Structure formats: C-alpha cells, structure tokens
Computed example of a mutant assay.
Amino acid sequence: MPVISFEHVSKIYPLPAGDVVALDGVDIAIDAGEFVLVMGPSGSGKSTLLNIMGSLDVPTSGEVTIAEKRIGGMDDDLTLLRRDHIGFVFQQFNLIPLLSVVENVEYPLILKGRPNGTRERAQEVLEAVGIAESHFTHTPGELSGGQQQRVAIARALVNDPDFLLCDEPTGNLDSKTGTAIMDLLGRMNREEGKTVVMVTHDPRMTDYADRTIRLVDGRVVE
C-alpha cells in the first residue's frame, strides 16, 4: 500500500480577484522506500502538493491518504500524524536560534513526551548525518549553511518518521555543499529505506531519484 496517495485532489484558494486553482484533479501514489522528485515551474502547485502531503494543508476536494490514514476531517489528529510519521526539511533550515544543535534535534522528542533517552538519541542521529560532537553545543548561527541543513535533517529523522518531505533543501547552499546534502539524503533512502519526496527546481537532482512528478498549472503531466 502506498505511504502517500492522492485521489483526484484539488486545492482552490478563494481570492477577491478570483479563485486560484493550485491543484487540479491530482492523482498520485508514492510507495514506501521511493525517492520522488516534484518539479515544475513557479506557481505550478509544488508547494501546495508538499503541504498537503505533510498535512499542513487540506484539499478542497478529493481524498488524501497518509500512512494509511485519510486526512479529511482529522482535525487535531493531524498534529499527531505529522509528529509520528512525517519529517520535514526546509530550504531555510528553520532551526531555533537560541537552542544548541543537540537541543534543536532533541526538541521533537520532548514534544512527543518521550520520558528519557532524548539526549542520547539526538546525539546518535547527529553523528549519523555527519555533525561532529564538538559542534553539539554550538547554536545554529555558529554553523555553516551545510552544517545547519545536516542538523535540520537530523531533527527530521530523530522521531524515525515514515517519510521525509524536503522543500528545496539545497536551495540556499553552494553546489558542492548541495551535492553533499543530496548524497546524505540518497544514503538515507538506500541504506535505511526512508521514503523521500523532494521539491526542487534543479534538474541535476533527477540522478538521485527513482522518478519525477512534474506539475504544470496544478496538474500532473507526463
């Protein structure tokens, strides 16, 4: 069974100047262990698609199933779905500036109410993504962009989610650092079986993916 499926999903934003159709009858299915790119021109619906996959938004019509749960009408349960099944990686990193590196990664475990072992788990995941122990007590502002993105990936992985949703994760990085981050995501996919869905504008990223979903004007095109 797919970990994510869309059945004739549309998303319409009503605006004073007229409705904006962000998604228009989208049908997709993503299986466990896939590495899938979402590509398309600006305004094609990529971010809306990712937000609905991450249960940050809900469709206007159609059915969305995430981790075997239909998200329509879940309300408060969407928070638990995000917490327990989904890891997010953003272009802007979105780390908490006042917390140390290890505290940033530990934070989702604390929110989950895990009673003990949170610091050890956070350190384990940081080491797995290539952050040296000497950086654990640094704040995000003391790290390079590539290091911050590795910390963000560690934070996304710390709850052992079913899949990772990545929104332009290399967009703020130079080419060499971006390649290193993609190699890391590729390794997580191949060696740990993590399902990865990534929005990108960069056609070079297709080398890492099993397939590419292309959007134009809110519709999937071949």
Rank of each mutant, 00 (worst) to 15 (best):
F6C: 11
F6A: 13
H8G: 13
V9P: 10
P14F: 06
L23A: 10
L23H: 11
L23P: 07
D24Y: 05
V26Y: 08
I28D: 08
I28L: 15
I28F: 10
A29Y: 02
A29C: 04
A32E: 15
A32L: 08
E34N: 10
F35K: 00
L37M: 14
M39H: 07
P41T: 07
S44W: 09
K46D: 09
M53H: 11
S55H: 06
V58E: 13
P59Q: 03
T60P: 09
T60Y: 10
S61L: 01
G62A: 00
K69N: 14
R70K: 15
I71N: 14
I71D: 14
M74L: 15
D76M: 14
L80Y: 13
R82I: 10
G87H: 04
V89W: 02
Q92F: 05
N94V: 04
L98M: 07
L99C: 11
L99W: 07
L99K: 11
V101K: 08
Y107P: 00
Y107D: 01
Y107T: 01
P108M: 10
L109M: 06
I110A: 12
I110E: 14
R114V: 15
R114K: 15
R114A: 12
R114G: 02
E120R: 12
R121L: 05
A122G: 12
V125K: 04
L126I: 11
I131V: 15
H135Q: 13
H138A: 02
T139W: 00
G141C: 08
G141S: 13
G141F: 09
G146Y: 07
Q149W: 01
V151C: 11
A152W: 12
A154M: 03
V158S: 05
V158A: 05
V158Q: 04
V158R: 04
N159G: 10
F163M: 13
L164Y: 02
L165E: 09
P169E: 04
N172M: 07
L173G: 05
D174L: 04
T177Y: 04
I181C: 00
M182N: 08
D183E: 15
L185N: 00
K194Q: 02
V197S: 11
M198P: 02
V199F: 03
V199H: 00
V199K: 00
T200K: 14
H201G: 07
R204I: 05
M205L: 15
M205K: 04
Y208I: 05
A209H: 06
L215D: 08
V216D: 10
D217V: 11
V220G: 12
E222R: 13
